[in-house]
Each structure stands twice: as structure tokens, then as C-alpha cells.
């Protein structure tokens, strides 16, 4: 029993580290925000406007092709972003992640955040 204790601690720590490594921004999105849908989705002009806004505000870090800089600024054409709901993305844009260099975009009008999200959805 006593001998097994260090092994159990090791397992627990490894599992914790694994969870931390796989945790994404979307895990912390409040249920109400997670469930929101993009009210401007479906109109082709929404993604066109989103593309313009992306160029203005996001491109400098996430690159023109949204593939990121290969370092701290991630690609937005990943399974993680595709798997997020519109609500998750809107919440994350509002919040930002200041500690890791992602600014908060709460200063953009809400409609513009939805337009950007429609553009992200239109990316191959």
C-alpha cells in the first residue's frame, strides 16, 4: 500500500498535467455564451465585412492566411477553432487572453465581432 503511494501520486500528477495541456479556452465559456448563435450568419456580406475587419484588427498577429506566426500567435484554421461554437468565439474575443498576448476585443461593437466570426467560419 505504502509502496504504491508514489505511483498513485505520479499518475494523478501526470493526469493533471495532461488535462491542463488539453484544456482549451472553450472549457471555461459560461453555458449561456456557449449556446449563442451568430445572428448575422448566413448572409454572404457578413463574412465580406468580417474579412475587412480581420485585416484591420487580427492580421498583424494571426497572419493574412490566419495560419498564425508559428510561435505564440496561433493559427485560427485549426480543429480547436472549428470545434468551438460561435458563442465560444464571441465570448473569447470579448475576453481576450491578456496574459498570453491576445487583446480583448470588447471595444469592438458586438455586430463586428459576429462579422469576424462569420469570416473565420468561411476559412477553408
Amino acid at each position: 500500500m505504502v509502496k504504491r503511494f508514489p505511483a498513485a501520486v505520479f499518475l494523478a500528477l501526470s493526469f493533471g498535467a495532461f488535462l491542463a495541456a488539453t484544456a482549451s479556452h472553450w472549457d471555461t465559456v459560461p453555458a449561456r455564451d456557449h449556446a449563442r448563435t451568430n445572428p448575422l450568419a448566413g448572409k454572404p456580406e457578413t463574412a465580406v465585412a468580417g474579412a475587412l475587419l480581420y485585416r484591420e484588427h487580427c492580421q498583424q498577429c494571426h497572419a493574412a492566411d490566419a495560419q498564425g506566426d508559428g510561435q505564440k500567435k496561433p493559427s485560427l484554421r485549426t480543429a480547436s477553432v472549428r470545434g468551438a461554437t460561435d458563442g465560444d468565439l464571441e465570448w473569447f474575443l470579448r475576453q481576450g487572453d491578456l496574459k498570453h498576448g491576445m487583446p480583448s476585443w470588447s471595444n469592438l461593437p458586438q455586430a463586428q465581432r459576429w462579422q469576424i466570426i462569420a469570416y473565420l467560419r468561411s476559412l477553408p
Partner: peptide
């Protein structure tokens, strides 16, 4: 407050 919230998508 901005005079218009949504972007028109035009330059």
C-alpha cells in the same frame, strides 16, 4: 458610442 455598429464591408 459609434455612429454605426456593423461594418458595411465597404472600404
Amino acid at each position: 458610442h459609434p455612429l454605426r455598429a456593423a461594418s458595411s464591408g465597404r472600404e
